[in-house]
Design a protein around this nucleic acid. Structure first.
Lengths: 166, 166
DNA sequence: CTTGGAAAGTCAACAAGGCTGACGTAACTT
DNA sequence: AAGTTACGTCAGCCTTGTTGACTTTCCAAG
């Protein structure tokens, strides 16, 4: 049969075998992606769930609990357990909203910022090494594929975060 | 200051901001990556752990329990719980080794192959859509960055799987 | 000003899937 | 014959997710 691509590009990269390799690459890479923060957190009272909360509070200071709920995609009971620990132990501060006093605006305390720094330094170091090894063009492709892989709703979250910072 | 790259390439892609975007892209994309199989598995007695076992047994038929243990990076107690369920319910067969009778060689039964098919069809469909949207060059970059992100030991696992099929 | 509903928090119970430690058995290796 | 390896299993624990039911607070619309 004739080449079905308008541009004449090979479709060899879409074979089941290529796709399987991509799937396994995601699996193994994600293990590496979380390994360094996990190592830092183990022994402390915290886990990956705390890391995620800290990351997004750092990313969007003053975000509300429901915002966080949407981004993380967990139940409020689950998030609440994590936030309670972080607040009790002085890593996160929950300020009652000025306009809407039902809302809690979340901020990292200096102590929280310290842990955030340690975690993201470790994660960024690995990312930086991978980026450097692969080069800018590969990085662009990496980001394109990941973005295309997201659920549309999550992609909006991601893109929203990308610029606005809220 | 002078451009520090020998090749004269910009290092803008290595800024903390770019790295943070990459980190969040991994987070959101991994959610998408697992979403479809998770949907299929929910309601059945199985979860992501079963999916992983099924995937790698399919990938390397006849693999032993210790092989699987190494690839998955979990304890034997944890894997055993998953395997026991899969064997009891007739998705996986454990054949005593011919050369070394201590070993159990794992195979998918027709029923197991059926579920594997459903799961990987769903996951590949998403992968294929993402690959197609991003194009072959982006896919190459995607794979390069992921590979660079793995722990060296896991990279060996990945690369080993890539060709040999064992 | 009252009331409906949204936002937040809490309690209880449960499940999946990790973990450690201890132990047993069969089979291979030295 | 002794030691090691592969596998399985019991028991108990932790993290992180889930539902369901309920309360408190408070904004906003009638």
């Amino acid at each position: 049969m004739a080449d079905p691509t308008p541009s004449g590009e090979s479709l060899l990269f879409l074979t089941d075998e290529q796709l399987r390799k991509g799937i396994e690459a995601m699996f193994f890479a994600y293990r590496g992606f979380t390994a360094d923060p996990d190592r830092i957190l183990e022994g402390m009272d915290y886990g990956r769930a705390h890391h995620r909360a800290i990351h997004f509070i750092h990313r969007s200071p003053g975000t509300t609990v429901s915002n966080l709920l949407t981004i993380l995609g967990v139940t409020k009971q689950s998030l609440n357990r994590v936030l309670r620990a972080l607040i009790e132990q002085g890593l996160v501060e929950a300020r009652v909203g000025r306009r809407d006093k039902r809302e809690r605006h979340l901020h990292l305390t200096p102590k929280g910022q310290e842990l955030e720094r340690a975690l993201s330094d470790a994660q960024r170091a690995r990312m930086r090494a991978a980026y450097r090894a692969a080069g800018p063009q590969a990085v662009a492709g990496f980001r394109q594929v990941l973005e295309a892989m997201m659920d549309p709703e999550l992609r909006r979250q991601y893109q929203g975060l990308k610029e606005s910072g809220v």
